[in-house]
């Protein structure tokens, strides 16, 4: 089977064509020219990489040869990775003003909606107020007035309908394994978002009746994390910005890279992906109006799961 993963946004291709190359109507290029141009390009890139590598090796050798030697013996490097504590390469962020415009003293349990445009990408930001986060397996009831915000959390494997990556529900592990490095842990009602191969939050969640799931990491320590999928889609993420937790949705289809960059530029410290595209979700505003992100499709998976925020009942 021929795999067609090389098409660009500006190309068209006749399906079933024997040679499997993108159709080049209107650009005046033949398939042969196209392939040959690609080969030339690859050779040029390889040559450039080789030259850069050679230059770097020569520089290192010359530096070592001519480096002045201190009479007191070797001087420790300013940054010695073997002896210093690891300092994350995190840009100084300082205190950030919260995005929320709600008064601090408000006791209203609801979701605040803000629209911001970052790098020409319109972002819908949903900030839950006076509510407790938890995970939920199944489809939450939109008529359950306790829930002020719900969005799909971990991915479901298409082949067996099970949850992708480690997942803990009220202390019960429902899935194990590391498929994505991003994680969200909820311990005693507090959300922690981060990126790690192994997170102690998984064990903590099982010991304390907490919650845990994994997804693609988008932002870690204020820096963009690159991910493999390159396609464009409607994107969602759960974010931590100076301790303020919120969900972000793109209004248009974006690549993961552009979405992550927009979150970095929004000032987000940590962000992990949530199920995007046309996945179901809903929220309640200050007037208790119910607004759905998308209609619920029929025939959902058994382990379809959501992160939901429940209001401090009956306070709201």
């Amino acid at each position: 089977m021929i795999r067609f993963d090389d098409i660009q946004d500006n190309e068209i291709r006749v399906i079933g064509q024997r040679d499997g190359h993108p159709h080049s109507q209107g650009d005046g290029q033949s398939h042969g020219c196209h392939a040959s141009s690609r080969r030339r390009h690859a050779v040029l890139v390889a040559a450039c990489i080789f030259c850069l590598g050679l230059t770097a090796v020569l520089c290192v050798l010359l530096y070592r040869h001519f480096r002045p030697v201190s009479p007191e013996g070797p001087v420790p490097e300013v940054f010695d990775p073997s002896s210093s504590t690891v300092t994350p390469l995190r840009p100084y962020r300082g205190a950030v003003a919260p995005l929320s415009e709600f008064p601090d003293a408000s006791v209203l349990s609801c979701t605040e909606h803000i629209r911001r445009t970052i790098n020409d990408i319109p972002l819908d930001i949903y900030i839950p107020h006076n509510a407790v986060p938890k995970l939920y397996v199944g489809t939450p009831d939109i008529h359950d007035k306790k829930i002020i915000l719900a969005a799909q959390a971990a991915d479901i494997r298409a082949d067996n309908g099970k949850i992708t990556g480690a997942f803990v529900l009220e202390g019960r592990p429902l899935a194990w394994g590391l498929s994505k490095k991003g994680y969200v842990g909820i311990i005693d009602g507090k959300i922690s978002i981060g990126m790690a191969d192994n997170s102690p939050l998984f064990e903590q969640a099982t010991e304390t009746g907490g919650y845990f799931f994994r997804q693609y990491p988008l932002v870690s320590d204020g820096c963009l994390v690159e991910n493999e999928p390159k396609n464009k889609a409607l994107r969602r993420a759960i974010c931590d910005r100076g301790g303020e937790i919120f969900i972000v949705l793109t209004a248009e289809r974006e690549s993961l890279h552009d979405f992550s960059q927009a979150l970095v530029d929004l000032g987000v410290d940590e962000a992990v992906y949530l199920v995007g595209a046309s996945s179901f979700g809903f929220w309640r505003d200050a007037a208790d109006h119910l607004i759905q992100f998308n209609e619920k499709c029929s025939g959902g998976y058994k382990y379809e799961n959501f992160i939901v925020w429940e209001r401090y009942w009956p306070l709201g």
Binding site: D9, I15, K232
Partner: peptide, 13 residues
């Protein structure tokens, strides 16, 4: 063979 010319892929979407 029945498909040839009937379906077209337009970009990535």
């Amino acid at each position: 063979d029945a498909v040839e010319g009937r379906f077209l892929r337009l970009g990535r979407g």
